[in-house]
Design a protein around this nucleic acid. Structure first.
Ligand SMILES: [Mn+2]
Ligand SMILES: [Mn+2]
Ligand SMILES: [Zn+2]
Ligand SMILES: [Zn+2]
Lengths: 144, 144
DNA sequence: ATAATATTAATAATCATTATCAAAAAATTC
DNA sequence: GAATTTTTTGATAATGATTATTAATATTAT
């Protein structure tokens, strides 16, 4: 169990039941991947065969609200979750229009734009950016 | 009926039935707003009381695929549609976390970031950016 | 006009997510 | 530590936006 995560759980006095621990472990075992609730359920059942889907949804929701997870809507109208290692700033995504793979973009060029918006009187607390295109592998292959 | 739109419809030899015309008119009457399919249906029924919801969905989908409309997923897992006046580049949104209003951001600072990604071997064809925060009116009011 | 094609409206199906609720587990009180 | 309150869970039902199906209607080609 990661130190930071543990601290956050305590800070929100979040009781670590075996179900919640299973979900957290699944997310930690899949660092860098973007899992749907269904996928999390399947993996969690390998550790805890009787865990229910409502519990998985509840737990993911709670962990996301503590910023331990990122919750992002991708194509297909389905949320996906990932461990948020760097809590300070949300990262971005490139979605390949051919293979569907999701790549990370760590660069952040949005600070300038956020400042402009604050000059207009807004207070920006979060943002979400997605690029759509072709990944290096798919770019050259015959059929787009 | 707008000139550009008419041209696009012809170019895709899209037959303008009265249902499709009703949907288009609703979108043109609501320039600048972001309507859900349900809202479009309601407005369209004021012009054409028997239009069906499946037809509205089909028409919105078709118009979006011709880039006459933008289709964007907002909070609540619901798509919203708006007339796309400037076809060249997608604009962005600020969603107020209190009142839910959607504001437009015309600035585009993403070209630099897209170039970086192209240096990595990606081919970027689209992007989508949303900011979340508080609008000027809500920023100062008592309860956030 | 006849036949082929396209479009429509009503309705059923889908599917991710949320709500409900009674049982089980954990924490508190006495 | 037993009784009681609170929290959490799992099964299942409900929701709600979107999509698929289908038979009727309108349009176009022959
Ligand atoms: Mn990611
Ligand atoms: Mn807009
Ligand atoms: Zn790819
Ligand atoms: Zn506001």
């Amino acid at each position: 169990m990661d130190k930071k995560i543990n601290a956050k759980l305590k800070e929100n006095n979040y009781k670590l039941t075996e179900q919640r621990e299973a979900v957290l472990e699944v997310m930690m075992d899949n660092r860098g991947k973007h899992l749907s609730a269904e996928e999390v359920l399947q993996e969690a059942r390998r550790k805890l065969p009787n865990i229910g889907m409502a519990t998985v949804y509840r737990t993911l929701e709670k962990l996301a609200s503590m910023n331990i997870l990122y919750k992002t809507m991708f194509e297909g109208g389905k949320f996906r979750y990932e461990l948020s290692d760097d809590e300070s700033h949300r990262h971005h995504h490139i979605v390949c229009l051919k293979c569907g793979k999701i790549y990370e973009v760590e660069e952040d060029l949005l600070n300038g734009l956020e400042k402009k918006l604050e000059n207009r009187g807004f207070e920006i607390v979060d943002h979400e950016l997605k690029f759509y295109g072709y990944c290096p592998e798919c770019r050259n292959s015959s059929t787009k």
